[in-house]
């Protein structure tokens, strides 16, 4: 076992929602989650849609707070950390690129500028090359890029903050297979080159097989199984894991 980057202790997330009868009520999204994410590893968070995967990520950079339980980063309670510092340390990329109006360079400079740092052109070029794009794109308008390119710029924008952790929420789902494969390579590359801890939500088993060191498998807001990827894919311990791996588990 490696060192834990994040530790979750009995974490429950609730949100306003509607029940089967359509009445407004409180819905339990994550129920008493206790687990940890290892430093410098890629953890794939797996599960059918609606299992709470994305919600789990949102707790780690405090886009939402749990109703109960405790989350620590390097042993420190998230609530004791400055929220802006926390979000700089824990970067996030979504399914769909969410670039701001303006040029690619302006997008990449956004995070550092919030801290009063002016990103150098050389550093911006380094970042855009790191995500596999050409430096000539820096002065293009962000909305003139393809979705695949925009997704890489989103990643470069997050990396400009020099995070320790990357949260990726189905980062390839809007991409064609080639672009998706490139993002996966990039994840492995970032892990080994920068030592990033990567937590990666996906519903595509093959992607997890290719890149994950660890697997956390969720179903209906609860942990079914947390295991090294190798073990999870070859010898799953739980009946629901086996059903999921054979494609028979309903959401």
């Amino acid at each position: 076992m490696g060192e834990a980057k994040f530790e979750l202790n009995d974490v429950t997330l609730k949100r306003p929602g509607r029940n089967a009868a359509g009445e407004v009520t409180t819905v339990i999204i994550l129920n008493r989650i206790t687990t940890s994410f290892l430093k410098g590893k890629i953890t794939a968070v797996l599960g059918p849609s609606g299992s709470g995967k994305s919600s789990l990520l949102r707790l780690l950079n405090r886009l939402e707070d749990p109703a109960a339980g405790r989350i620590t980063l390097d042993g420190q309670d998230l609530k004791s950390l400055n929220i802006f510092t926390l979000r700089q340390r824990v970067g996030m990329v979504w399914q769909l690129p969410t670039l701001f109006p303006g040029t690619v360079l302006e997008n990449i400079s956004y995070g550092p500028r919030l801290r009063g740092i002016s990103l150098s052109r050389a550093r911006a070029e380094e970042l855009i090359l790191m995500v596999g794009l050409g430096t000539e794109l820096l002065d293009r308008r962000a909305d003139s890029l393809s979705i695949g390119q925009q997704q890489r710029v989103s990643l470069a924008r997050t990396l400009a903050n020099e995070p320790e952790v990357l949260l990726l929420d189905e980062p390839t789902s809007a991409l064609d297979p080639t672009a998706a494969a490139n993002i996966l390579h990039l994840m492995v590359d970032l892990k080994s080159r920068l030592g990033l801890t990567i937590i990666f939500v996906t519903h595509i088993l093959d992607q997890a097989r290719q890149v994950a060191d660890e697997v956390l498998f969720l179903h209906h807001g609860e942990i079914v199984e947390a295991a090294p990827a190798q073990q999870f894919f070859t010898a799953p311990q739980e009946p629901r894991s086996r059903l999921f791996l054979s494609g028979e588990l309903e959401g």
């Binding site: 700089q88 769909l96 969410t98 995070g111 919030l114 903050n161």
Partner: peptide
């Protein structure tokens, strides 16, 4: 919502995220 949360996740205050 996507752009606003992206700005927040990069370390923006609520005010800066919603400013546009």
């Amino acid at each position: 919502r996507g752009e606003i949360e992206a700005a927040l996740s990069l370390g923006a205050t609520a005010y800066l995220a919603v400013l546009p």
